[in-house]
Amino acid sequence: MVAGVVVDASPHLLVVATEGGGEARVAMSEGTRVWDGGRGSFAALAPGRAVVVRHGMERPGADRVWVDITRVIGTITAVGRASVDVDQGPHREAVTVEIPPKAMTAVLVRHPRLEPGHLVDVICAVTPDGPRAVAPGTSQPGHRADASPQAPVDARVADVSHGSATWFDGPGFGAAYPALDGEGDAGGCADAPPGCVPLPLLSLGSVVTVGNECAKRTAEVTVVACGCVAARYCDRCVQCGTSPRGRLVELTPVAFAALGGELERGCFNAALRHDPGVRA
């Protein structure tokens, strides 16, 4: 997996300045699929554009390249004629998402209540004017942001929790976890809702094992951010069958793609396990 900024591209080679300050060279082939606000071509790989590259499992070189992809999730605070203002929670910036007419129909189909107080989740393309919605990330939960269902107080934590995994804009290979402890240096929010999946309280640096039940891939992922906004989403993922309700984890694009997720689809049916005592 590679994430960074395009330095140079040809039909056979993509050179990327990586997030760590290095440079990665990735072989390209006719089988490499490019996403650029939809199906794109190699012409989209212009120097300066941000890319996430997934290596192929069966052949060398890049399998998928996503160009300037981002995602906005949170609570709608205002609705304009072709835009919505979104509060992404205490750890992420509030943004205004432009929704062009082409995307509006698809967004409204999956978000019938595009109203203040309701949740939104859209896959966007990065533009100089801010994020521009391309497609809905997942279907809008039926509940309002301030009325998300919560697991019973005494609900036990399963050895392996099942639900959905989504992704968020974050660097490296990591995860935002929706049930971070709010005390000490754990990194959580004091007013975060408990969510509808009973999850153990963890800390930044905790390691969880995330499985993609659709692609049958598993990886250990370090918690690098607070995912308290995800705790408000008591929704399902339907990439392969219908997952139980609730978001277990938000992965960085690199981690999400490495686990076999397709960024433009927004989620995969996931299993999550935490082995006590493992901390990065």
Partner: peptide, 10 residues
């Protein structure tokens, strides 16, 4: 120096 939580233990 550090305080963190892992499930049943702080």
């Amino acid at each position: 120096l550090d305080v963190w939580r892992e499930g049943c233990w702080r």
